[in-house]
Design a protein around this nucleic acid. Structure first.
Length: 498
RNA sequence: GCCCCCAUCGUCUAGCGGCCUAGGACAUCGCCCUCUCACGGCGAAGACAGGGGUUCAAAUCCCCUUGGGGGUACCA
């Protein structure tokens, strides 16, 4: 008999209780890559059953983050699809229907214990050194007993009747078989008293109804999986494939969180990272292709991704490596695109006008290209290019003392000014010619000429090549800064003499 | 406490019994290029957690210890 091959369907199912975390993004990416690689369907489902913590802003942030990364979903909010709705809060009837079925088949029961009682009992049994499992006191309530509890105004939850016998095996694509003794599992809640399903229940119903074939998620879900498998079995649903990804850790090897620095995807965007760099980096957190390859385009990732090359051990998020990788992508950017991405940042700082004319754009492009190999994030562009855009620049005092307070500087600047004021056009070859001529006149090493100029013109001793800086800066600002510093140095030197 | 997962350079990892005197990348250090800083090039240092087995042979398989992580909710 021919093997039935069903189309791969994966999903990312975030709960809108915070921004899109890089860990979540990595999970989304792997699901997306797997679906794209197999020509399958990638579903986005919003798990908003926690009324307390779900927010509209989080939802927006998740959409924004996924879109920015280029992780488009085939079904879900927006495109919709045949298995909607894709918000769990809009699927309550569906859950209730299935809960009722379990109730009818006596595979679940009503429980009237209050959260306070449960908490207390849990603490007591914990103190006695026992497993803090639910004691099943509501498992065999008579109708009369239930009525009595209900009359007292208690809102029941529905608990799943789990088996104490045998074991449940999770067959994980990444880890192999994981065996859990059923004795360990208690009668967990599947429907809360507010009518919302719990995660372990809703996820099963939805994954089944949405025909998810591969559940790819963080390995913090491993211990939930046997519960979910029991629900699948109780409902007679086929069990999907599972693949549990290793966690992403911070530098202290604990689960990545805010104290480790930026964790939200939009934060990386705002901090000047490129989506293709983040995607590439995230792909390498828990997955590798070969002994030597680290740089992959999205198309290559789709082509090369497979679950059998996913690692089992947790990965520490290494900001340094991300920055390096971002630098690689930055350096590969076409000048036009680089200019496009840099302009809004300059505008936000008020360094350039809202309307950028052709000449300004050309100038920005020159500056961007000059700085391209010197920045690792877009965010670094603004501070390191500031002196091109403002009249009053800041001077680094140490650099001034080291390079400007030298007795040959006033004369040197004088000679340069004589020539530069008449340099036409004011471009790199001509500027270089001037410097070489002056160098011959003063008979000094090039560095002794350029460093003082660099400080005078940029305020620092670090910048791109001097000639391209001056060309981009233009004759007016160049000469003005040289003149100002020439006078300043002259005064300083004569004051020192006195 | 109990259950589960994990264990190769500081970090991400390659390795799926002999190809390993363990390979690559980031970070670090040195040299070269050079007007500074980057970029780039070359090079150095740096790891199989420990202990038992199995085997002619173990980073690779098994067990224990240790260490880390996760779960143990009317969160997801």
């Amino acid at each position: 008999m021919a093997k039935v091959t069903t189309k791969v369907r994966t999903r990312f199912a975030p709960s809108p209780t915070g921004y899109l975390h890089v860990g979540g993004a990595r999970t989304a990416l792997f699901n997306w890559l797997y679906a794209r690689h197999h020509d399958g369907i990638f579903v986005l489902r919003i798990e908003d059953t926690d009324l307390e913590r779900s927010t509209e802003e989080s939802l927006t942030a998740i959409f924004e983050g996924l879109e920015w990364l280029g992780l488009d979903w085939d079904e879900g909010p927006g495109p919709e699809g045949p298995f909607g709705p894709y918000f769990q809060s809009e699927r309550l009837d569906i859950y209730r229907e299935h809960v009722q079925r379990l109730l009818d088949e006596d595979k679940a029961y009503l429980c009237y214990c209050t959260p306070e009682e449960l908490k207390q009992r849990r603490e007591e049994s914990f103190a006695r050194g026992e497993d803090p499992k639910y004691d099943r006191r509501c498992a065999c309530l008579t109708p009369a007993e239930r009525q009595a509890l209900a009359d007292k105004g208690r809102e029941p939850v529905v608990r799943f009747r789990s088996s104490d016998e045998g074991s449940t095996v999770v067959d994980d694509l990444i880890r192999g078989e994981i065996v859990f003794d059923n004795e360990m599992l208690d009668d967990f809640v599947i429907l809360k008293s507010d009518g919302m399903p719990t995660y372990n229940f809703a996820v099963v119903i939805d994954d089944h109804l949405m025909q998810i074939t591969h559940v790819i998620r963080g390995d913090d879900h491993i211990s939930n999986t046997p519960r979910q498998i029991q629900v699948y079995e109780a409902l007679d649903f086929p069990v999907p494939e599972f693949a549990h990804l290793p966690m992403i850790h911070g530098s202290d090897k604990t689960k990545l969180s805010k104290r480790h620095g930026a964790t939200s995807v939009t934060e990386y965007r705002d901090n000047g990272f490129l989506p293709e760099a983040l995607v590439n980096y995230l792909a390498l957190l828990g997955w590798s292709y070969s002994a030597t390859d680290t740089l992959f385009t999205v198309d290559e990732l789709i082509r090369k991704f497979s679950l059998d090359r996913v690692s089992r051990n947790p990965a520490v998020f290494d900001m340094k490596k991300l920055e390096w990788m971002n630098g690689v992508y930055l350096r590969e950017m076409e000048p036009d695109r680089l200019t496009d991405t840099v302009i809004p940042r300059l505008q936000r700082e008020g360094l350039i006008p809202e309307q950028v004319d052709k000449a300004t754009r050309a100038k920005i492009q020159k500056i961007a290209v000059a700085l391209q190999s010197r920045i690792r994030t877009l965010a670094e562009f603004v501070p390191s290019s500031r002196y091109f855009f403002v009249d009053d620049i800041e001077y680094n005092q140490k650099a001034v003392e080291k390079f400007l307070y030298r007795d040959y500087v006033p004369e040197l600047f004088g000679l340069l000014l004589d020539k530069l004021t008449h340099t036409e056009p004011f471009d790199e070859p001509n500027i270089e010619k001037v410097f070489l001529e002056v160098q011959a006149q003063v008979d000094r090493k090039l560095g002794e000429i350029i460093q003082p100029v660099r400080v005078a013109v940029t305020g620092t001793n670090v910048s791109p090549g001097m000639y391209e800086v001056l060309a981009a800066l233009g004759p007016a600002r160049t000469c003005h800064r040289l003149k100002t510093m020439k006078e300043m140095v002259k005064q300083k030197l004569s004051a020192d003499e006195a």
